[in-house]
């Protein structure tokens, strides 16, 4: 049985705004291939103010699809259509106090129905370029299509790189076999073969540099990293040690452990703890590594 929140159950057992709106002037019909679910959203939009005066849904789908539809109609009623378009699938999931990772696509379907309905109201054609695949990483809810496209467009070769770029595999690591499967398939298309990096876990990280994250906010990001290091510093100093930031390349953050920390058997745990804090603070998956593992070409630059 899924672990549905009280809120999901409430909206499933007693859905709000079920059924079509009688004098609707906008309709959005969408379906999610990934689970066969489908949703029709009907809206009554005031042509003067563009306020959504009424919203109704009809859903062919599971408990969370019905609850997401119900939540969506509650959220958008009373909003202007521009305001409504700001609603993200995460907003729908948050409104329901969260959805299981396998069910996040139900909230995506809700958001797409809204876009389709608004397009219908405006007399536009709605199409969607986003495709969904089988869920690979349950920890971070990353699907196969996402992994495959990232591997292809960034020319990735290792599981570690996939983790750095997509977060997939960065949690419990159970999905690494599936990620290797994607790599094997995509690399085979180019006539290359996937070469596993040793036994896995103990392999030093390869610094990957995703283009997008370097473009903007690099300084802000480094300041955030410094802030986290400043926060952990007192604890290290209490043990006669210290830490300093050496280099940041993409998702890899190199630090130098000094004093009693350097050579300490707990160093790996210390780095792990700092990494966890940084992931939380930055809201992205990063890897904290000792500067001794820095590739020569970066260290030399």
């Amino acid at each position: 049985m899924w672990n549905y929140s009280e809120k999901v159950q409430e909206h499933f057992f007693d859905p709000k705004n079920a059924g079509a709106v009688d004098d609707a002037n906008a309709t959005g019909d969408v379906g999610s291939l990934s689970c066969g679910d489908a949703l029709r959203l009907t809206l009554k939009v005031n042509p003067e103010s563009e306020i959504i005066e009424d919203a109704g849904f009809q859903t062919f789908g599971c408990g969370s699809a019905i609850a997401s539809s119900s939540a969506l109609t509650e959220i958008i009623k009373g909003k202007t259509i521009d305001e409504a378009l700001e609603v993200s699938n995460q907003d729908i999931a948050d409104y329901l106090d969260g959805l299981p990772p396998e069910k996040m696509h139900c909230s995506v379907m809700g958001r797409e129905a809204l876009q389709a309905a608004v397009a219908d109201y405006r007399g536009e054609e709605w199409s969607d370029d986003h495709e969904e695949g089988a869920l690979i990483c349950k920890c971070f809810a990353i699907d196969e299509v996402m992994v495959e496209e990232t591997v292809r467009s960034n020319n990735l070769h290792t599981v570690e790189e996939v983790t750095n770029f997509t977060k997939a595999g960065g949690g419990c690591s159970s999905c690494h076999e599936a990620i290797e499967g994607v790599l094997t398939r995509v690399l085979a298309e180019k006539g290359e073969s996937f070469v596993a990096a040793g036994i896995g876990g103990a392999v030093p990280a390869v610094a990957a540099t995703p283009k997008e994250s370097m473009a903007t906010g690099a300084l802000k990001r480094i300041r955030l990293i410094e802030k986290v290091l400043d926060e952990v510093r007192p604890a290290l100093q209490a043990d006669n040690g210290d830490v300093e930031l050496v280099e940041v390349t993409g998702k890899a953050i190199y630090v130098h452990l000094t004093g009693a920390c350097s050579g300490c058997q707990m160093a790996a745990m210390t780095l792990g703890g700092i990494q966890q804090r940084l992931i939380e603070e930055l809201g992205e998956f990063v890897k904290v590594l000792p500067d001794t593992e820095m590739p020569v070409e970066i260290a030399g630059a």
């Binding site: 019909d29 379906g31 999610s32 489908a38 797409e112 969607d128 495709e131």
Partner: peptide, 8 residues
């Protein structure tokens, strides 16, 4: 046919 959603 009466309900033919856009599948994504």
């Amino acid at each position: 046919q009466s309900f033919a959603p856009v599948y994504t």
